[in-house]
């Protein structure tokens, strides 16, 4: 039983890592009042970019970097439409997803059936004594570097959001942009910055899939991970600390469905579980009492314009 749990948890962490990257980014985006439904598109563009750069240069880190840049640039399209042009954020985000999915298929065509050579893969680390410890080894000291980076990002992003002036600016822009503007906060700058961060992290999440998790390029390989990120952002109630719990929980459900299958537990039922939990969390969060503490950013999805104050 213990072995089963350790093994399941060990598998859940890499399964949840692309979700964690995406969710951390989307939390910043939504905290600043922008709803970006283009995560799926940015992730898959990150996946194809990451894979192609890692393949051609033989260096996985360059692949991750390129994926981050491409994700960031794509998010700027959304930022321009929704912040500068004050367009409909839902339409723009959906367009970005469809655009990314289509373009990645086109760009990736020549990488189909090409494996990533061994030196271009990111492999698990090996620390002499620690990695070989019976339970702690597989649970803490055998993952690939990106897993540790994603875990490290959690407290950093939490700290910035809640303990720094920049974090206050981000949150205030998401709650009440007019007041923030009056207080001298650069609403447009903050929103552009947060949308960009979201794009960068979505791109890295996609690269994790194509360089580490299933090291290959196949059309449509994110298979809806971007939409799970949107659900996870709500599930985490826009907090980086809860995001890590949520990501590993969602990853755990993905992993468990095959381990519990012999017991006759339907994988379809397990697959709906995270979404049912998300709905429950959302219902709890929208109650008046809770809303003041943990609700969605008040200005989420609303374009801001100075003239209409």
């Amino acid at each position: 039983m213990l072995e089963f749990l350790v093994e399941a948890l060990r598998a859940a962490i890499p399964a949840g890592t692309p979700l964690l990257f995406g969710t951390l980014g989307e939390i910043y985006v939504e905290r600043s009042g922008i709803l970006n439904l283009g995560v799926e598109g940015m992730m898959i563009m990150g996946a194809v970019t990451g894979f192609s750069v890692a393949l051609t240069t033989g260096n996985p880190w360059l692949g991750v970097l390129a994926a981050a840049i491409v994700g960031g640039l794509l998010s700027l399209i959304h930022a321009f439409v929704s912040i500068t042009l004050r367009g409909n954020q839902v339409v723009s985000g959906l367009a970005l997803t469809m655009f990314g999915v289509g373009l990645s298929g086109l760009l990736g065509r020549r990488f189909i059936g090409t494996p990533l050579p061994a030196q271009a893969k990111l492999v698990g680390i090996r620390i002499p004594v620690l990695s070989d410890l019976p339970i702690l080894g597989p649970l803490f000291f055998q993952f690939d570097p990106l897993v540790y980076i994603s875990i490290l990002l959690v407290p950093i992003m939490w700290f910035i959001l809640y303990k720094t002036k920049l974090g206050i600016s981000i949150r205030s822009v998401g709650e009440d942009p007019a007041t923030a503007d009056a207080m001298g906060v650069n609403v447009f700058g903050i929103r552009y910055l947060c949308t960009f961060i979201g794009g960068v992290l979505a791109g890295v999440g996609g690269a994790y899939l194509s360089i580490v998790y299933t090291p290959s390029w196949i059309e449509g390989m994110t298979a809806g991970a971007g939409w799970i990120v949107i659900a996870l952002t709500i599930f985490a109630l826009w907090s980086p600390l809860r995001a890590i719990l949520g990501a590993y929980l969602f990853g755990g459900v993905k992993v468990l469905q095959y381990r519990l299958q012999p017991l006759g537990i339907s994988p379809n039922l397990l697959n709906t579980l995270p979404f049912i939990l998300t709905i429950l969390v959302l219902m709890a969060a929208t109650r008046e009492v809770m809303r003041r503490r943990i609700g969605a950013p008040s200005a989420l999805g609303l374009p801001y314009s100075r003239e209409e104050k």
């Binding site: 004050r86 339409v91 367009a95």
Partner: peptide, 19 residues
């Protein structure tokens, strides 16, 4: 601005016909 945003959206929608 409204006209520009409509045009930009149209451009995006045209681009999203790809998949």
């Amino acid at each position: 601005l409204v006209i520009t945003s409509v045009l930009a959206l149209l451009a995006l929608l045209a681009a999203c016909a790809t998949p």
